[in-house]
């Protein structure tokens, strides 16, 4: 088994790619888009490229992609990732045609019974103790599935509890069996460090409190990059590069990025000391004028928080109530 420094698991639609199918014509257009026509969520390509980039003298990171897009889109999606300069180690797509052919209509929409077995099976490729960071969005149940995976992996949920949740989610028996088999083969370890949920639908951050403090709701990848920098996953140069990409791709003015910085600090996910470190690194990059301006604006926003700036990470419940959360999810959808 290869030793991996860290595992990054990504969803694609609405997490990596802008896939807003608000109309049938838009949905059809997305299905026939060429790789170069596909649009990234701002900053996603720059961030995933950084995370997947091999570094000299450092163990590689493992990138696993689990997407709800149909398997027929594999070629175009792989070409898109290659165009973005992203390398990956696993890439799973949903066998939608197979589900339809076998009359498994529930499985067409169900994400829990699709993603959880894949995540647990994929974990067999890495040694216990290897940390994981997962990326999803608020359009479907990514936060729920990732948290469930983290709790099964950590041994906080036993097999019987997992089966009850999967049944309640409407998973088919074969999916449940795969989960039980994969989970029983795993060495229990509390290895999921963080779950990022991109608030594509602008869901209120408090909606995710019930899933615990390891879940970080972010409004964009600038916020995610800052949190990853503070956690030692990215260096300052990488954050500056992502900031630059963000300024170019999204046309966000400098002060808007500073507002996003203040937001993630205020919500307790980023220690203010990270700013100091980043500021020093930017000083050394003489040419990075716009990025330097972002940092100075961030410093000002940090000062604006004044005496109230000792923000603590929001604390989640002692144990996640998955069954009641599932009810809430069903009601929302």
């Amino acid at each position: 088994m290869t030793d991996w420094r860290h595992v990054y698991r990504w969803d694609l639609d609405k997490t990596y790619l802008e896939t807003h199918f608000e109309s049938l014509s838009r949905l059809v257009r997305i299905a026939f888009e060429k790789p170069e026509e596909k649009v990234n969520v701002p900053g996603s390509a720059a961030l995933l490229r950084e995370l997947s980039r091999p570094r000299e003298g450092v163990m590689p990171n493992r990138v696993c992609i689990v997407s709800g897009s149909p398997t027929q889109m594999r070629k175009v999606l792989e070409q898109k990732l290659a165009l973005d300069g992203v390398t990956w180690h696993e890439f799973h797509l949903k066998p939608q045609w197979d589900n339809l052919r076998r009359g498994r209509l529930r499985a067409v929409r169900d994400q829990v019974g699709y993603k959880l077995p894949l995540l647990l099976e994929s974990r067999a490729n890495v040694a216990a103790g290897t940390g994981e960071t997962l990326f999803g969005d608020d359009a479907e149940a990514d936060g729920f599935i990732y948290s469930l995976y983290a709790d099964v992996l950590a041994g906080r949920l036993d097999s019987a509890q997992m089966v009850r949740i999967l049944k309640a989610a409407g998973a088919y028996p074969d999916a449940i069996e795969r989960c039980v088999a994969a989970a029983s083969a795993l060495e229990r370890a509390d290895d999921v460090e963080r779950i990022f949920v991109i608030l594509d639908k602008r869901s209120p951050p408090a909606n995710f409190r019930a899933l615990g403090s390891r879940l970080v709701p972010v409004f964009n990848y600038f916020q995610a990059a800052l949190v990853l920098f503070a956690g030692g996953h990215l260096d300052a140069a990488a954050v500056i590069g992502i900031t630059r990409a963000f300024l170019e791709e999204d046309r966000h003015p400098v002060d808007e990025l500073a507002n996003c910085f203040q937001d993630i600090v205020r919500r307790g996910h980023l220690p203010g000391s990270a700013m100091q470190e980043l500021g020093l690194a930017v000083q050394e990059q003489i040419e990075a004028t716009a990025e330097r301006e972002v940092i100075w604006n961030c410093v000002q926003r940090f000062m604006d928080l004044g005496e109230a700036r000792a923000f603590r990470k929001p604390q989640g419940p002692d144990a996640t109530e998955y069954l009641s959360l599932l009810d809430a999810l069903k009601r929302r959808s």
Binding site: R202, P204, F219, N220, N259, C260, Q262, D263, D304, G306
Partner: peptide, 21 residues
């Protein structure tokens, strides 16, 4: 203000907070 904001849908790029005691 912070906890009230967290309960709502908003765009953080378009607002910031200034603390006053």
């Amino acid at each position: 203000l912070g906890p009230l904001l967290d309960e709502l849908s908003y765009d953080p790029a378009r607002l910031s907070l200034l603390h006053t005691p």
